[in-house]
Simulated scan of single mutants.
Amino acid sequence: MNMRIGELAKLAACQPETIRFYEQKGLMPAPIRSHANYRLYDASHADRLHFIRRCRALGISLDEVQTLLGFQDRPDMTCGGVNDLVDQHILEIDRQIADLRTLHAELSELRRQCDSARPAARCEILKQLGETSSSDGPRSEHVAER
């Protein structure tokens, strides 16, 4: 069963541009072309696209997806590298969760500074945000970069 890019995109709930991008990055194999030069995809393309989209939904980077596809394309290899990649991803998520908890605590404390609506000139939150303090350091900037 061959399908054109629009059909594959609809099947995968993505845009045709996404498929072209994955092809350009080498994540998707080039499809065959019809006599009218349309891209024609088969079930293996749909399976691979589903794999890529699932990885991306889990926050796996394109480089990591490329690595995982390498393992998938060589089924005779051991999956120790896959385990290592996922373990590193879990550690990164744990770090992000810790950063978000710290951010939540900081914002909650900031919110406690102003318990009622007042003129902006007397807003404790705005005053606190305007003060220079040690919380302006790298951790706060790192959270903001995401």
Rank of each mutant, 00 (worst) to 15 (best):
Thr78Lys: 10
Lys25Arg: 13
Met28Ile: 12
Ile52Asn: 00
Gln24Ile: 07
Arg39Trp: 01
Ile60Asn: 02
Arg111Gln: 13
His50Asn: 13
Leu100Phe: 07
Cys123Val: 01
Ser133Tyr: 02
His35Lys: 11
Thr132Asp: 12
Gln128Glu: 04
Ile52Met: 00
Pro29Lys: 14
Glu131Cys: 02
Gln113Thr: 10
Arg33His: 11
Ser133Thr: 06
Ser108Tyr: 04
Pro138Ala: 14
Val65Gly: 00
Ser140Met: 14
Leu129Val: 06
Glu124Asp: 09
Ile60Ala: 05
Asp73Lys: 00
Arg122Phe: 06
Glu145Asp: 10
Ser34Leu: 05
Leu58Val: 06
Ser135Met: 13
Arg4Leu: 06
Gln72Thr: 12
Ala98Lys: 05
Tyr41Thr: 01
Ile19Ser: 00
Pro75Ser: 15
Gln24Ala: 11
Lys10Ala: 15
His50Tyr: 08
His104Ile: 10
Met77Glu: 14
Leu11Phe: 04
His35Thr: 11
Ala117Asp: 08
Gln66Met: 13
Val86Gly: 00
Ala13His: 11
Pro75Asn: 13
Ala144Gln: 13
Arg54Met: 14
Pro119Arg: 13
Ser134His: 10
Ala57Arg: 02
Met28Leu: 15
Leu129Gln: 10
Ala9Tyr: 00
Leu85Asn: 04
Phe71Asp: 03
Phe71Tyr: 15
Pro16His: 04
Glu23Phe: 02
Asp63Arg: 04
Pro16Ser: 13
Pro75Val: 12
Gly81Val: 03
Ala105His: 11
Pro31Asn: 08
